[in-house]
Amino acid sequence: MKSEDEKKEAPRAKARPSKRPVTKKEEVPLEPSPKQPVLDQYVTLIKGAVGEQAVSESHINREAGHLPTIVIRKEDWLATARYLKRSDELSFDYLQSLAGVDYASYFEVVYVLLSMSTLQKVMIKVKAEREEASVPSVSDVWAAANWNEREIFDLFGIEFTDHPHLKRILLPDNWVGYPLRKDYEPLDKEV
């Protein structure tokens, strides 16, 4: 992170105490989201097909239009992916988006899957620890994942096991370090 950015940050905060306290979202118990049953159905299906321990956590993402979100364990992710794609009542055949996120203490790979037939959407998250993170590659389940996984490997350093051609895609091959990591030290200071 740019150090002079912190310096700029400090005077501003001191010079102008924020007029309104940031409105805390009131903690009234939200009414259950319409997609809750859908989420439960997915979770039970995945648990049935892959195993109890596959789903570590699942919730509804309210801002993203009540998108059911499921966190899958790294070890069972390949089996779950195959199941999600091939099972006929789920048939998530369209990998809409694939993103890597660095939460400082762990990595997270986020898949947004869409089923062309049932027009249902689901967000799958797979966590990977910080040091030599590795996530099973799903490029043979969805071909679209091939380049995206290479991009995440290129910018985050997350290894995708048995990916056909895991090499840097955006940065030159002799690039040192993974830029999108929070602890990435840029080679040359900002000019």
Binding site: K25, N61, R62, E63, S97, V110, V112
Partner: peptide, 8 residues
């Protein structure tokens, strides 16, 4: 607000 979103 804190959270995560994907919109296309």
């Amino acid at each position: 607000p804190e959270g995560e979103i994907y919109t296309g």
